[in-house]
Design a protein around this nucleic acid. Structure first.
Lengths: 346, 346
DNA sequence: TTGTAGGCGTTATCAT
DNA sequence: ATGATAACGCCTACAA
C-alpha cells in the first residue's frame, strides 16, 4: 500500500507485466495464488511492479473467466423489516468468516423484483443466493422463477430458501403452522375465547401457514376461528387492523398478529386509544424480532439469525465440500415466549 | 417468455446469432437498443431466435465492455440498525424508479470492510456508491480509502456520503451538533440540571459531533458537561450504560443517548429496574428511528429516508445530467420531537 | 520456468 | 444493412 502512486489510473495485468518485463501469463500466475512454479526472482519483479502500480485484479474480469466470485446475495422482502435484518446478519456473519462478501437486495415483496436481482447476482457469478422471504401460493411468475433458479444452479450459483418456496432445493425454515398454533393455544390456555387473527400479506405461503395454525388451534378448542381481519407484515397494517376492530365496536379477548410488526402496530394503536393491554385485551405476535423484545410482546421465537447463518453454511458448504448436507430441508425449532402483553382473561 | 426451453443451458450471443443465421454483430445490435439500422426481416429473425433460446445478455460481459452498470451500492455500518435500514430504503426507492438495482453492504462499522465492498462495487462498475455511515476521526486507512474513492470516481462510479467523511465529495447530512444541542436544551428547559450523555462509538465523527453539541448546550447553560458515560450505537450499549449508572448510585435528572438505540437500551434497562421514566429521570435520543416512535422516545427527527433519497438523486443525477447539483454538501433540517420519555424535573 | 494463444460474452469501430 | 474484428481484463491449457 505504501509507495503507491496517488490516483493512479487503473493498472491492469498488461501494465504490471510490461513494467516487470515478463509475460502477462507469469504476471497472472504470481498475482493470483497459482500453484504454477515461478522463479523467486521474477516473482519478486512482478510483485513489486504490482505494488508500485497499486495493482489489484479486476474482480469483474476474474468472474468472467473463472465463472465464480466470492459474493453471496441475500434477497429479502423488505429492508426495513427487522425480520430480514436479523436474517441478513446471520448470513453475513458466516459468509464473512469465509472471506466472502454479502450483498442484500430488497425485492419489495415482489417476485418480479426478485427475478431482477436473481438475474444480476447470477450474471455476476455470485457464489450463492439466499431467498429470505416466502413465496406466493399462486404466482404467475412461478415458472419463470423456477427456471431462473435452475439455470442459476447449473451455472454454479447455489440457491437456498429460508421460507416456503415454489421451487425445489435446500432450505432452512421453521414450522409456521406450529408457531401460530402455539401462540394461539397459549391465549386459549389463558382463558380467552374470542380471539381474532390479523392476517399477513395476501397470498404469501407464510401468511397462509400461520393462519392455518391459528385455525387449527381454535378449531380443536371448539372456538370460532373465523374472526379474521386483513393485515400485512408491516406496523401500519397493524394500526389499521386495530382501528378497524375498534370501529366495529366488538373487541375480542385477544389478538394474534401474523407477525410481530402487525401485532405491535395493533398493540400501540390499542393503547393509544386507552384500551388496556393485557387487561382488556391480550396481544401476541410471531417472530420475536428486536422491537418485540422492546415492547415486551408475547410472541414465538423464530431463530432468525440462525436461519440466516445456516442458510449461508449450506451455500458455502456446498461450495467447498466441507459443509454439512447442503441438500436437506432443515426445520429449526421455535419456542413460545410469554411476555407482558398477554394475561388471563378479564 | 413463453416457448422457452426449460432449463436451457445458457445461450450467448453466438448461439442466437448462429440460430438466426446472422453475424454476432447484428444480433447484438437488435438485442440491445442500438440505433444502428437493421432490416425488419433480420430483426425479426434475431428476435425470435433469442426468444426461443431464452436469451438474456450477460450483465457481466456488458459491464466489462461498457464500463458501467445499473447497480448502485449502499455501504452501511450495520444492517440491523434501523437507522441504516431507513436510509437504504430511501436510496432504493429513487434508484428503483430509475430502473437501477440497489445492493446494500454491511461493513460492520469497519473501514477495512468498507474498502472491500468499495472494491467489489467499483470493479463491477457500479453506477454509484452511497456511504451511509460516518467516518472515524483518526483512521489509518484514511489515505487508502481516499485513494480508492478517487479511483472509483475516475473510473466512472459516482460516490456520495451521507455523514461526515475524511474524503471530499458531494454529501447530504444533518447538523449533528445542532441535533444534540437541541435535545439537550429541551431537557434543560424542562428544569433538568444533572444531565448525562451516553457517548457513541469511539472515534466516529458523528459521535464526536453529537458530544460537542451536548457540551455546548450544557456549557452555555452553565451546567456540568462532564457527565459522560461510554456507550455505542447499539441497544446493548445503552443497557450497559444504564447498568453502570445505576451501579454508581447517582442517577442524573436526565439522560441523552448519542442515538435512539442506546437511549432505548438505557430506557428499558431503567424501567426494568423500577426507575420511573420520565418521573424520576428523563431519557432522550437522536434520530427518530421507528423503534423510537414505538416506545414514544423524545428525540430529534433526522430525515433518514430523505437522506438516502437525496443521496441517490445526486448519484443518478450526475449520471444523466438531468439531476440537481451533484456537487454540493446539502444539510437537511432536523427537528426536536418531544414525546413521553421526558418531562419536567421531579 | 516462461511465453503463446484461445476464450469468457459483449460492444463498437471499420470496412463491405 | 451486415459482417469481421479488435478490445475489455483476466485465466489456463499447451508449447517451448
Amino acid at each position: 500500500v505504501a509507495g503507491v502512486k496517488k490516483g493512479a489510473p487503473i493498472a491492469s495485468l498488461v501494465d504490471i507485466a510490461g513494467r516487470a518485463g515478463v509475460s502477462i501469463a507469469t504476471a497472472s500466475r504470481v498475482l493470483n495464488g497459482s500453484t504454477h512454479p515461478v522463479s523467486a526472482a521474477t516473482r519478486a519483479l512482478v510483485l513489486d511492479a504490482a505494488a508500485e502500480l497499486g495493482y489489484s485484479p479486476s474482480l469483474l474480469a476474474q468472474a468472467l473467466v473463472t465463472r465464480t466470485s466470492r459474493i453471496v446475495g441475500v434477497i429479502v422482502g423488505d429492508i426495513v423489516d427487522p425480520y430480514f435484518a436479523e436474517v441478513a446478519r446471520g448470513v453475513e456473519d458466516v459468509v464473512g468468516r469465509r472471506s466472502h462478501l454479502t450483498m442484500v437486495c430488497s425485492a419489495d415483496r415482489s417476485t418480479a423484483s426478485e427475478l431482477r436481482h436473481l438475474k444480476v447476482l447470477c450474471d455476476y457469478r455470485a457464489a450463492g443466493i439466499v431467498f429470505a422471504s416466502s413465496g406466493y401460493q399462486e404466482d404467475p411468475l412461478d415458472a419463470e422463477l423456477e427456471d431462473a433458479v435452475t439455470r442459476a444452479r447449473t451455472a454454479g450459483t447455489a440457491v437456498v430458501a429460508l421460507a416456503h418456496r415454489n421451487f425445489a432445493g435446500p432450505s432452512a425454515t421453521v414450522d409456521n403452522r406450529a408457531c401460530a398454533r402455539d401462540v394461539t393455544e397459549h391465549l386459549i390456555s389463558l382463558g380467552h375465547r374470542q380471539i381474532t387473527f390479523i392476517e399477513g400479506p395476501e397470498g404469501l405461503h407464510t401468511s397462509h401457514q400461520r393462519l392455518e395454525g391459528f385455525r387449527g388451534a381454535m378449531g380443536r378448542a371448539g372456538l370460532d376461528c373465523a374472526r379474521l381481519v386483513p393485515g400485512g407484515f408491516e406496523y401500519e397494517s397493524g394500526v389499521q387492523a386495530a382501528v378497524r376492530m375498534m370501529a366495529e365496536g366488538s373487541l375480542p379477548d385477544a389478538i394474534v398478529g401474523a407477525n410481530d410488526e402487525v401485532a405491535i402496530g395493533a398493540l400501540m394503536s390499542l393503547r393509544q386509544a386507552g384500551i388496556a393491554v393485557p387487561d382488556r385485551v391480550s396481544v401476541a405476535g410471531i417472530d420475536d424480532t428486536r422491537p418485540a423484545r422492546i415492547v415486551e410482546l408475547t410472541t414465538v421465537r423464530v431463530p432468525l439469525y440462525e436461519l440466516g447463518a445456516l442458510g449461508a453454511q449450506m451455500l458455502l458448504g456446498a461450495e467447498d465440500g466441507s459443509g454439512p448436507d447442503a441438500a436437506g430441508a432443515t426445520v429449526l425449532p421455535h419456542r413460545l415466549i410469554a411476555r407482558a402483553t398477554t394475561g388471563p382473561r378479564r
